[in-house]
Every structure is written in C-alpha cells, then in structure tokens.
C-alpha cells in the first residue's frame, strides 16, 4: 500500500492518539478544548452550552490527536469505549468548587484506567486558578494534591506507583497552554529526536532557548534541554498569536496569492514549497538586546528561538542554514510518525 500523498487525503483514517477529557459539570472541559483547539477567546467560553453527549474533536499537529470532550455525568458504562483506548486521561477540577465529589469520581476513573493499562498518562488539571491570589492558589493546589494521594492510598497501597501529574491552569492566562504542552509531550513518541534537533540547533546558532510550537494551538511540542522559564514561554506564546493575527490584516485580494504562486513555481515538486514564513522581533534597541526569531517548519509547526541581537544580525546566513537543517530533520521525523500510523492500519 502506498501512502505517498497521505496528507492530501483526509478520508484515510490515520490512527489517532486519543485524549479523554473528564470532570464535573461546568468544571471547564469544553472551554479548555475550545480555547486551545478552536480559537475561541477565553471570554467567549462564558457562553458555552453544557455538553450533553460525547464530542470527539480531531486535531493535527506533530501527531494526530482525537480529543473526547465528555458531559459532566459520563460514566464508564456510558463512555462507549475502553479506557485502554486512550493514551491520556485528563480530569479537570474547578479550584473554586468543593473537592470531595470530583476527587472521588476522578479516582474511580483513574483506578479503572490504571488497571487496564498501567502506562496510561493520568493528568489532573486544577482549573480556574486565575481567580485566586498566588499564595492562596498554591495552598489550594497543594491541598488538592495531598488529598488525592491520601485517598488513593486509603483505597490501596498498591496505587503508590500510579503516575499522577498535577497542573494548575486557567484559560485566562498562559497556564493552560503550558500545562497542555506538558500533557502532549508524553504522547509524542519521537520527542527525544525532536529535542535532540533543538539542542543541536541551539548549540550551532548560539540560541539560549528554542521551542517548536504548534502554530494554531500555540502549544509547544518540544523544547531544548535548558529549563523553561514561564515568562519566556508566555512571550513566545503571545508572539505566535500576534503573527497569526497579522496575516489576515494585510492580506491583499490581488497580490497575496501571487506570492505563493511564485514560490510553488520556483521549487521542484518533490522538495515541497520553498517559501517558509519567518519573522523576528527585536527586544531592546541595541545589539546588546535579544531577538526572538520565528521560522515556519511545517504547515503546523514553527521554530522559535531566542538569541542575542548581535548574533542574529551578524550570523544570519548561518542561522538560516541551521533552520534548513532543522526543518529537514523535523520533516523526516513527521514522516516516520505518519508512516507508522498509516502502517498500523494495514495490520
């Protein structure tokens, strides 16, 4: 079976990585899904209707995802699927709500899932956290975390090894993006290869930090080995948002299309398009400052890298060369992911 143009035929079902979104009524499940994957603004989530049946949404990034948004009262019986079908289960707990019921329900699901597939990723989002002051937020977060672990061990000491991950989130700031990025990382088999490519890129380009972002959702799918500073992450997130918003503003009905035409003509059909959007924002006027570069890598992904402005200006050629090298690496990895998923259908 040939899959050479698999990307262009969405009718062929690839094997998607499934994520289950659970939580009490009004805990914010649909809001999270809509804000991340459907460009809904946080304020607009106020008008979302309660979810009455399971909604399966697909999203294509470095791996193809299928996210199941459930009604608040879904049970193992009404789910209509085995928990082992999912790679990750996310349970959303409203930080402003009482915890007893949600924690009990969450543990029911988690224990059932763990028994079926011990490798499953179990994620707890302590959500709507923006409403509290930082201190109070952390205090509540710790409290919930402790309570979950206590109750779990009360049920059985066997669950000590259960891999639970806790995140403090809100759709009103960048925390949902950072948390969901971390959820996503665990699902990407090729993550170590992407990280290697980023490390090499940083070393060769004298970049202090680089992220591979999914452009539409503004989740980062990988980063280099240096620690993630939340401020830097947030700036990158906002930068991608700015660039996404700029495109349509100055789109010319007579000339924009011609730009792309020229690019597809000048490139041989096998090498794909030669034109990749790029951008750079310079911070602080002097060459002492920092520049944040943006390079499109695939239609979904972009490389963001921080470097000294002096380096950016003096070694532009080298940077572009490193980007080409990086792009080839990522495209190769994406292709392997794609083939593996198509292949698994044939079996």
């Amino acid at each position: 079976m040939q899959h050479s143009n698999g990307t262009k035929s969405p009718t062929i079902d690839v094997q998607r990585t499934k994520i289950l979104l659970l939580g009490q009524r009004r805990s914010g499940k649909t809001s999270i899904q809509q804000v991340l994957f459907n460009d809904v603004s946080p304020k607009q989530t106020f008008y979302l209707e309660p979810t009455t049946r399971i909604v399966k949404d697909t999203y294509d990034t470095v791996i193809p995802l299928e996210i199941w948004d459930c009604p608040g009262n879904v049970t193992l019986d009404t789910l209509g699927a085995s928990l082992s079908d999912f790679s990750s289960i996310i349970f959303v707990i409203d930080i402003q709500d009482s915890y007893q019921q949600p924690v009990a329900r969450m543990l029911d699901f988690f224990i059932a899932a763990y028994q079926e597939s011990p490798d499953i990723c179990l994620e707890v989002l302590v959500h709507k956290a923006e409403a509290f002051t930082d201190d109070y937020k952390i205090e509540n977060f710790r409290h919930i975390q402790q309570r979950v672990i206590d109750e779990l061990l009360d049920i059985s000491q066997d669950y000590e090894q259960m891999p639970l991950n806790f995140h403090l989130t809100s759709v009103y700031d960048h925390s949902i993006h950072e948390a969901f990025s971390r959820v996503l990382h665990k699902l990407i088999d090729s993550l170590p290869y992407l990280e290697d490519l980023l490390n090499v890129f940083c070393a060769n380009s004298q970049s202090s930090k680089a992220f591979l972002f999914d452009v539409k959702s503004r989740l980062y799918v990988a980063t280099d080995a240096s620690p993630v500073d939340t401020g830097t992450h947030n700036l990158c997130c906002d930068y991608v948002k700015t660039l996404n918003a700029f495109g349509p503003l100055y789109k010319s009905s007579s000339s924009s299309a011609a730009r792309l035409l020229r690019d597809s003509r000048s490139s041989s059909p096998s090498s794909g398009p030669s034109f990749y959007p790029s951008a750079a924002v310079t911070l602080a006027p002097s060459t002492q400052g920092t520049t944040l570069t943006y390079h499109s890598i695939t239609p979904q992904l972009a490389l963001l890298a921080l470097m000294h402005t002096a380096v950016f200006e003096e070694q532009r050629g080298l940077l572009e060369y490193n980007v080409v090298f990086f792009r080839e690496g990522v495209q190769e990895i994406s292709q392997v992911e794609k083939d593996a998923r198509m292949g698994s259908l044939v079996v």
Binding site: G247, P277, S278, A279, A280, V281, L283
Partner: peptide, 10 residues
C-alpha cells in the same frame, strides 16, 4: 523594539 515578518500574505 522592532519586528520584521515574511508571512504568506505579505
């Protein structure tokens, strides 16, 4: 400080 963009549109 400054921004430069080469987007598909412009």
């Amino acid at each position: 400080y400054a921004l430069e963009m080469e987007l598909p549109e412009f």
